[in-house]
Design a protein around this nucleic acid. Structure first.
Lengths: 122, 122
DNA sequence: TCCTACGATGGACAGAATCCAAGTCAAGAA
DNA sequence: TTCTTGACTTGGATTCTGTCCATCGTAGGA
């Protein structure tokens, strides 16, 4: 655990945090000005491998990093401003895929992204 | 409707087609060698705006374009080789998000991505 | 103290997508 | 027929995101 890694972990702390790697880098730089982008990417990659952080790709742009990894949830995204909320749908989305629709795949994971307009943009 | 646009539309015709912009460009170039990448991107963007084609971002890499836009479906992706299948879950995934979990959003769309290993990779 | 190994650094690089100025083309007007 | 206009295409430059790699620094062990 180096100071760089601690700062990255601290930036990714809180509720409804979904920063891009660049945003993490910007915030980490406020506390540790010389931290490099490569270190942020390396640390994020390690946190993802450790299962402490989830990678989210809600658009075709930059991946976002979600520290809420220990509580299964899905995402609700504003199509206009990009705001992301963690949400908890009823039921198990995985169970909704019938065996006949699995084509022999061993399905292990499901990601659900709800899209719409947030109150401010509506 | 120009020859360039027609060729792009023709490339995106068929079942289970999920090409990247570059793959569309490569296939379009076979029929119209001088077609430029910019034109392919422009045309794909128009087709998406018109609702004729769906943009799919199943990984952090290039977006894919799915011409099966008029039949609601979701995607099943092999985590290893990237193969994509169109699938049809039971029920309406949109209905699984309770009002209390919508936070005032007007939710209009849902994307579900199932992940696992395809028969060849398992 | 010196070595070693791991992590950090920053610049180069690569892939995807967009932007932009210039060129091309076709249809309608004169 | 020739000109004008506007839409479309082109290709190169640029931006954005992410990865790679050679080098550097540093902490801990011998």
């Amino acid at each position: 655990m180096t100071s760089q890694r601690r700062v990255v972990a601290e930036v990714l702390d809180g509720e409804h945090v979904h920063y891009t790697a660049d945003e993490v880098h910007a915030r980490a730089s406020e506390r540790l000005p010389e931290i490099s982008r490569a270190t942020v990417y390396n640390t994020l990659g390690e946190l993802v491998s450790l299962g402490e952080v989830i990678e989210v790709a809600t658009d075709g742009r930059a991946k976002r990093y979600d520290p809420n990894a220990h509580h299964p949830h899905q995402h609700l995204v504003c199509s206009n401003c990009g705001t992301i909320r963690d949400v908890h749908p009823a039921g198990d989305p995985l169970a909704d895929l019938p065996a006949a629709e699995r084509f022999g795949f061993t399905v292990s994971q499901v990601e659900v992204t709800y899209r719409g307009l947030c109150p401010s943009c509506a």
